[in-house]
Computed example of a mutant assay.
Amino acid sequence: MLKEIEIQNFRCFEQIKISGFERVNLIGGKNNAGKTALLEAIFLNIAPHASSLAILKELRRESSKAVQAMPDRAWDNLFYALKKDTSIVIIGKDYNNTDRVEIKLEINSVKSSIVIEFMRNENRSALSSKKVPATHLMSYDTSTTGKVPIIPSFTRISGRELTVAYDNARLNEKDSEVLKAFQIIDPAIESVESFYIGEPTLYLRRKGEKRLPLSLFGDAMNRVADIILKLVNSEHKILLIDEIENGIHYTNQRDFWRMLFRLAVELDTQIFATTHSLEMLQAFADVGLEPDQKCSSAYFELARKLKTNQIIGIRRDLETLNYALEHQKGVRGE
């Protein structure tokens, strides 16, 4: 599991080091405090490939035409304050201190290329060093972003990708977890089926009713399906969820957290999620503090220093978080 991450010159982070990650981690803060950027940095740390940069651009819905039109400027927003003369460095360490991955990105404005260097372990032995034309990065296939362990706040995954993911879960005897997740949102759901008549589609059946395609059950069901299927099918043993509260009614949030906590332990997977929601924060604290809870968890608040405007990460254990919530103290970057 990832224990800490250090980020330099990436997105909104000039320099930040966050330590003490647990099995399940919730991240809060004001708008533009770096919550999404932190997930992206963790993603680059676990998937240190040139194609990952293209995937991040795809997930942010940034036009590929900008790369073709302005190749020397298309990747500027990866760099803090557009400082392309300074390398991006992302360093991650696990709990055994046996794996240290360092990612270094550089832009050559003259040649319109990106140099990507990956290091591993304390001796800084090079995993690879790759020079990639900036225009070529967007030629990487991003059509399989549904397999990437990061869930954006706004993108709705296609029915085809969900159906394929469900069949993978069924093949691995994990399809029952998908049904349980749907039942958290709608207890009347009694079955999930995949059909390949025309477009691959998932169908749900409520008690006493005919089966209907998943798309007719609203955005919450689609998002829950995406989260659970990525979790049970995870190859990276990590899941990154941006704005986890989206679509999930507050009355269902505790049961949803219980499921995530349980699966994180059973599947040996680490979860990072962001939120703006005070209700989701309280549900997270309540479930994490339950007497029989076996999953370790922590809350991280991203905030800006008043004097320097630099972003810092404040770790709160659940007892501290719960105390702050009960006494209405600011815990979201206030």
Rank of each mutant, 00 (worst) to 15 (best):
T144S: 10
N246L: 11
S143C: 05
S51C: 08
E40I: 15
L281Q: 10
H249T: 05
V132W: 06
N97D: 14
V192N: 01
A41F: 02
M221L: 13
I46M: 06
E209F: 14
L306Q: 11
S19V: 14
S277V: 11
R316G: 02
V178C: 04
E58I: 02
S87H: 14
V132Q: 10
K65T: 11
I228P: 01
I107D: 02
T308G: 05
A169L: 06
S176T: 08
V164Y: 14
F217N: 08
D85S: 15
Q282A: 11
V164I: 15
F300I: 15
A225H: 05
I248G: 07
L26D: 00
R156T: 13
K210R: 12
E266R: 15
K294V: 13
T251R: 09
Q270F: 09
K93I: 06
M1G: 13
N123W: 10
R262Q: 06
R170W: 07
R23H: 11
L278A: 11
D175K: 14
Q310W: 05
L204Q: 02
K174T: 01
L162G: 05
M1A: 09
N121E: 10
L78H: 07
D292K: 15
D175W: 06
E243C: 05
V101P: 00
M259P: 08
V224E: 00
N25G: 03
K104S: 07
T308A: 06
A50F: 06
E22D: 14
Q253R: 15
G247R: 09
V331K: 02
L162D: 02
Q68L: 14
G29L: 03
S19G: 07
K130W: 06
D167Q: 13
E326W: 03
E4R: 13
M70C: 10
L240R: 03
Q253I: 06
A181E: 01
T274A: 05
I114A: 05
D72L: 09
L214Y: 03
E266I: 12
A50I: 14
W75D: 01
S19W: 02
I248Y: 03
I227W: 01
I157P: 00
R262Y: 12
K65P: 00
H136R: 12
L325G: 11
T163R: 08
Q15N: 14
S215V: 11
N31R: 09
F21T: 13
G29M: 05
L212D: 02
N233M: 04
K57A: 04
M280R: 04
E301R: 12
N45Y: 13
H327G: 08
T251Q: 10
D186F: 03
K305M: 04
K329M: 10
E199Q: 09
L216P: 01
F256M: 07
